[in-house]
Amino acid sequence: MNIKFDPNNTVIKLCMSGMSYEDSGKIEDAITMFQKAWDEATDDYERFIAAYHLGRKQKSITDRLKWMEISLRCALNINDENVKSAYSTLYLNIAKCFEEMGDFDNAKKYYELSNSYKDVHSDDGPFYHGTKADLKVGDLLTAGGTSNFNSDLKMNHIYFTANINVAALAAALAKGEGRERIYIVEPTGDFENDPNVTDKKFPGNLTRSYRSKEPLKIIGEVTEWSKLTTDEQGEWRKKLAKTKAK
């Protein structure tokens, strides 16, 4: 099964619609979308994501705990690099439920489990960078450029990912008239989780997105990947415009 985060996956799109309703204050509509995502989930990866969002919106502590435990169980069943970054967040949410219920022994246990997975990443790649820039093997990608998605932003970091689906999205939405390109890159220094996505919408860093102040060296280029349709690109551009407006 392909468990890499795919922004065009039906369940992920339903959860994102739910979060849009949530941002607009339409909580009941959000819960309806999260429930639909759960009902349509077909594997542990989709169930783990849908259960997490359903759990967040439960009014009852016991229901919140139940859904977070389901989410964790599905994530542990997968046991893959693509979901390990979510463990800390899931353990933390479960710990908070136990603390709220007055079960301090279990709360302590789950806080400790959360801490044991915090800031732990040993991602060996391969890593990708999506763009429309015409570059070649051996070139260095450096920080300090203008954001692909917001021309008002100067980038203090260079961004990359271990998920080719995310690199494909970046390439499709990048500014410029050139063709979409995905380069295989190698970090030349330390890197960290991209805080713009980590624990913002989904638990952990499911997109395996990173950033570095040090250059990325281009070591190859991907020639074939699943490209976004014109309609899908339009949907994402609307989402980006909405985010920028906020």
Rank of each mutant, 00 (worst) to 15 (best):
E99F: 11
K227V: 12
T42F: 07
N150Y: 07
G234E: 15
V222A: 06
L140I: 11
Y183K: 06
E177I: 06
L140E: 14
T230S: 14
N165M: 03
K239D: 14
C97V: 06
T198H: 07
N196D: 12
L92A: 13
Y128E: 10
A241F: 04
K66N: 12
W225P: 08
D29M: 13
D43L: 03
D134Y: 00
A50W: 00
I94Q: 01
T62C: 07
K84I: 11
L141H: 05
L113P: 05
K36W: 00
G145Y: 02
T188Y: 04
L14Y: 08
R64T: 06
P126Y: 08
A143S: 15
K213S: 11
D105L: 07
M155D: 08
D103P: 03
M101H: 05
A245R: 13
L240F: 14
K132I: 00
Y111W: 12
T146H: 05
G220A: 00
K108F: 14
E235K: 09
C74W: 07
R47A: 08
K96W: 10
D123H: 05
E69G: 03
I182L: 03
K36D: 11
K66F: 08
R208H: 04
T207P: 07
N205T: 01
N148T: 06
T146P: 03
L141P: 03
N9C: 11
A107S: 14
P203D: 09
T131F: 04
A37P: 08
L14T: 09
G25V: 06
D23P: 04
T89R: 13
L173S: 06
F48V: 04
A241H: 10
T32K: 15
K109D: 09
P7Q: 03
S151F: 07
N9H: 08
E81D: 08
L76N: 10
A30F: 03
D199M: 06
E177R: 13
N163L: 01
F5K: 06
H157M: 13
E46L: 03
